[in-house]
């Protein structure tokens, strides 16, 4: 049971992030929501990496021990890096929107419609 907690936490994080994207009006909060989804997915990936065996990339590994593939860790690192880029880009969009519209409210920042 206790091993399932990280999965539950990941799903809750993703759910919270989706909630923020759906119901929060502030554009910055939407960006935060996406960061939450990302953390949830990263947590999920890392949890998948928890297997029986010796931790990966271990210099003085005991001989004969079976090492876990470090794939999830590698994936998570890549995903974090991508996440930084997307968050930075989205925040810069928010900045430009605020500069021209003088608002961060999603209901008001919608000149494109119909």
């Amino acid at each position: 049971m206790i091993y399932n907690f990280p999965f539950i936490a990941a799903v809750i994080l993703i759910g919270l992030g989706v909630y923020a994207c759906m119901f929060k009006r502030n554009l910055i909060k939407i960006v935060i929501g996406i960061s939450l989804i990302e953390s949830g997915v990263n947590l999920f990936l890392i949890t998948l990496g928890y297997r029986k065996g010796v931790a990966p990339i271990y210099t003085n590994a005991p001989s004969g021990a079976s090492m876990v593939l470090p794939t999830p860790q590698a994936l998570t690192l890549t995903s974090i890096v991508i996440g930084v880029a997307t968050t930075a880009l989205m925040l810069s969009f928010v900045m430009t929107i605020y500069k021209h519209y003088k608002t961060l409210d999603a209901r008001k920042a919608r000149r494109l419609k119909g």
Binding site: V18, C21, L27, I30, V31, I34, I37, E38, V41, T86, L89, M90, F93, V94, T96, I97, K99, H100, Y101, A109, R110, R111, L112
Partner: peptide
């Protein structure tokens, strides 16, 4: 202008959620 950034923000939010 503000509109291109607005369009890009919308596209980006959906793309990010989708990619995740």
């Amino acid at each position: 202008k503000g509109e291109p950034s607005e369009a890009a923000f919308k596209y980006m939010v959906l793309s990010c959620i989708g990619a995740l």
